[in-house]
Amino acid sequence: MTARQWITVTLLLMPGLGLIVWLIGTVVYIAFAQSFGLYNINGESALTTAYWADLLGNNIYLRSVRYSTYIGVMSAIFSVVLAYPLAIWLRKPFTGSMTIGSILKAPLLVHGLVAAFLFVNVISYHGILNQFMQWIGIWDGPHRLQNDNNAIAVLILQTWKNMPFALLLLTGALQGISDDVLDAARDLGAGSWARFRKIIAPLTVSGMQAAIVIIFIGAVSDFAFQVIAGPINRQSLAQLMVGYKGRGDWNSAAVVGATMIIVALFGSAILAGLSKIVMRGRLK
């Protein structure tokens, strides 16, 4: 291309891509700069690795990294695993499939905070679940289920919220598979598992990767579910970042923010690669 053509293409891309790059770029740049002592809100700015060194030697920070990664990975896996059979079921329209699909996607319309508060009400000490379990005689007395140490409540909420999103992407990918291909496989003697393993999985891997990556990024940076329903003895990265910011320690907050970006970036790349290997049996 000539220089003139390059300029034309660049100018044409500027309104859309330029805005995105500028908006994301400035935020990421400032977060990383603050994590190294620059752009100080309080006090003098000076380039230093002290904030990273402090946090890398801090158990609270390291546990937060592990915990948020755990929540991100498990939420993405659970959401996709639950969405697959539903997407296969809803692939071909049948009477009522539209209604079922709409009901399944309803959590997308409910804000996470609302869902978290409702869920806490359900599992609270004298909540519906405890009362029901006692009524049917399984439990003798109420159990303390709120803020469980294994973050089961957070994983339930994440899966409830994100599964419809995975379902949306996977249904689209599945509906793109021709009936002829599946019928041919059936004619050649492929059972349900073989059709899933050798046709559906490889042909829907792109949709699945998109779902797993987007859900992972959202769950890694979760704040709302964690604060309301999460374990007390663990802090998510977002929770830790808000804590530092609340104490006026913007540099440490920036380190945690930059960590979230790094974990989201590398974690989603690893998950996308692994999911391709699992679904196709190879990386390429």
């Binding site: 609270s124 000490y125 004298h126 109420p142 303390r144 803020n147 309301i228 007390i232």
Partner: peptide, 17 residues
């Protein structure tokens, strides 16, 4: 027990927990 917030503490007393 460690509770989630100021409000959570009071709610759990009110609830009898």
């Amino acid at each position: 027990v460690i509770t989630a917030s100021n409000a959570d503490s009071i709610t759990r007393i009110s609830d009898g927990e």
